[in-house]
Design a protein around this nucleic acid. Structure first.
Length: 272
DNA sequence: CACTCTACCTGTGCGC
DNA sequence: TGCGCACAGGTAGAGT
């Protein structure tokens, strides 16, 4: 499931790869499944995006924003993309094999295409005039946030750690995998409430979230069930129930917390 | 406010 | 072999 590190990895490939999406002109748009377009008609989206130039790709949490201008450079808008569970973006030559669940295609100059492939079809594409329309509903980016801001936001909270960290309005970018990995690194139980955390435990939580996400970005994300072929972030607990804890050797257990599969080491992550 | 549940989707893996 | 089913989970929106 693409979370912050995987989405950042996609952004870097699109911006820094050869070819780059920056400066590319969109000749036309194919929408193979109308439901991926959210909040406006496929015709409205096509009208805005066809002929546009891509000037910038930026990420906040798990959201990607593509800054577009029309041919004259007089009219700007942003194309927003959320990959949700199984969405992938490929910038490839138009001759390359088409993934079987391609939902959306931007045809670019020089026979390049940007394809959005998504087996479960949860992912969405839409347009905004300002990314703030989306970001204002979200907390600070989970990788960009500093310790002081993190501790300040934590101080206003009383909730259990797992649902809190999954809440995109607290910090944006963590999903089920990296919440479990962060809590393991912080040696904190997912059901622990913020209220019961000591100061050193709050600092440990910040450090764990930051280190896990930074390491995962450096690894180009994780590779769960072969979904993210490029990533090699070493998962310690997610999906590893029944296997030995890499720190103490105890058996990793799986609970259900906030309707999510939740993996932890019961001896490394005790409750206060 | 905090939580729980459901809908949206489809590929996978299980039991029978 | 094949069928039915539970399961995976990010987000929005409704309900408790």
């Amino acid at each position: 499931m693409p979370e912050l590190p995987e989405v950042e990895s996609v952004r870097r490939i699109l911006v820094d790869g050869t070819p780059s999406l920056l400066g590319a002109v969109v000749w036309n748009v194919d929408i193979l499944r109308a439901s991926v377009v959210d909040g406006l008609s496929t015709e409205q989206l096509r009208r805005q995006v066809e002929g546009a130039t891509v000037h910038e790709v930026f990420r906040h949490g798990k959201y990607l924003f593509f800054r577009l201008s029309n041919a004259r450079g007089t009219n700007f808008c942003w194309m927003a993309v959320h990959l949700r569970m199984t969405g992938r973006l490929f910038l490839v030559s138009e001759e390359s094999a088409i993934a079987p669940h391609t939902r959306f295609v931007l045809h670019l100059e020089n026979r390049q295409v940007l394809r959005f492939d998504d087996p479960r079809a949860f992912g969405r594409v839409w347009l905004v005039s300002d990314p703030a329309e989306v970001i204002s509903r979200l907390g600070p980016d989970a990788l960009a946030i500093g310790k002081d801001m993190f501790l300040q936001r934590l101080s206003g909270q009383r909730r259990q750690l797992k649902p809190l960290l999954l809440d995109q309005s607290f910090v944006a970018g963590l999903g089920n995998i990296y919440v479990d990995e962060s809590l393991f690194r912080a040696r904190l139980h997912p059901l622990q409430s913020v209220t019961g955390l000591r100061g050193d435990e709050r600092e440990r939580l910040f450090a764990a979230v930051h280190e896990v996400l930074q390491q995962a970005v450096d690894c180009k994300g994780a590779n769960i069930d072969g979904v993210f072929e490029a990533g090699n972030f070493p998962v310690a607990v997610y999906g590893r129930n029944g296997t030995p804890c890499p720190v103490c050797g105890s058996s990793i257990v799986k609970l259900r917390v906030a309707q999510r599969g939740t993996h932890l080491c019961p001896s490394c992550q005790p409750m206060n």
